[in-house]
Write a protein that binds this DNA or RNA. Structure first.
Length: 123
DNA sequence: GCATTGACTAGGG
DNA sequence: GCCCTAGCCAATG
């Protein structure tokens, strides 16, 4: 499997329940910004792989696709506490999971461990 | 190795 | 705020 695909899968895997991420963000986190479309291509092959692909949505909080089962994807998201109106996610900006570029080296949360509700900067 | 495709995104109407 | 068009990238045939 291409390293890019592996990265994408890894990233999608660490999206917690109730949270969502856009294809673009995932592509960027995987090291290929702008490859959102490629991410979608990878997703269609990972229907079953232990990857919560239903938490991957399109930009602007839209649902995007899910094979031919976008409706199922919507239900899954709602089941996790995500409010979905039509084909758009409500409070998308707050539901979006902040991804990480790459686990190059994470010794042991050196200083960010005791962070409170003030994330210094909000993308 | 080139051409087509597809769970996308950003911009304009 | 929704629909259509053009651009982009990796995967597949």
């Amino acid at each position: 499997m291409a390293p890019f695909a592996a990265r994408v899968l890894m990233i999608v895997r660490r999206i917690p329940p109730g949270r969502v991420a856009t294809y673009g963000d995932i592509a960027e986190a995987a090291g290929h910004p702008g490859a959102a479309r490629a991410v979608g291509n990878i997703m269609r092959g990972c229907s079953v792989s232990g990857v919560p692909c239903h938490r991957v949505v399109a930009a602007a909080g839209r649902l995007g696709g899910y094979g031919g089962y976008a409706g199922l994807k919507r239900d899954l998201l709602r089941a996790e506490g995500v409010q979905v109106l039509g084909s758009t996610i409500r409070d998308f900006k707050t539901r979006r999971f902040r991804l990480r570029a790459a686990p190059v080296s994470r010794s042991s949360t050196p200083k960010g461990a005791a962070r409170k509700h003030k994330p210094t900067k909000m993308r």
